[in-house]
Amino acid sequence: MSDLRDLYQEVILDHNKRPRNFRVLPQPTHKADGVNPLCGDRISVFLDIEDDVIKDIAFQGTGCAISSASASLMTEALKGKPVAEIEHLFEAFHSVVTTDCECPRGLGKLSVLAGVRDYPSRVKCATLAWHAVRAALEQRKESVATE
């Protein structure tokens, strides 16, 4: 079980059980859905962007512990950030969950998902919400799929 605890850290289990910002924004400026056809994960993200800053961000949907916790942690990480920083954060996050790199600084709590790197089939779960945010920013209407 010890290596499983590396994946399912307390923070992840907690965010899975009590996801933060788990709600619908009534009038978001940006919105998109993400689906993972492999496992049926389905997430909607909502953003309120004002003056190029993320004033509010929320998500809803169903998914595994990794995708739910990742979405929840992502909303915490992005709230209040300038839009320009999203791409940089995503890249840093992506390399944490896919490579053996040292965790880049500035990722904060997001680095608890580093355990995902040992579970290649779960990377898509960890990045689903991020893909949805990027789609929302590009204002793509259709839902994005992870494959």
């Binding site: 994946l7 399912y8 496992c39 169903t62 512990a65 990794i66 089939s121």
Partner: peptide
């Protein structure tokens, strides 16, 4: 309940 099938599969 409480555990998504995908997590069950991984464990």
């Amino acid at each position: 309940s409480g555990a998504h099938p995908h997590d069950i599969g991984t464990i």
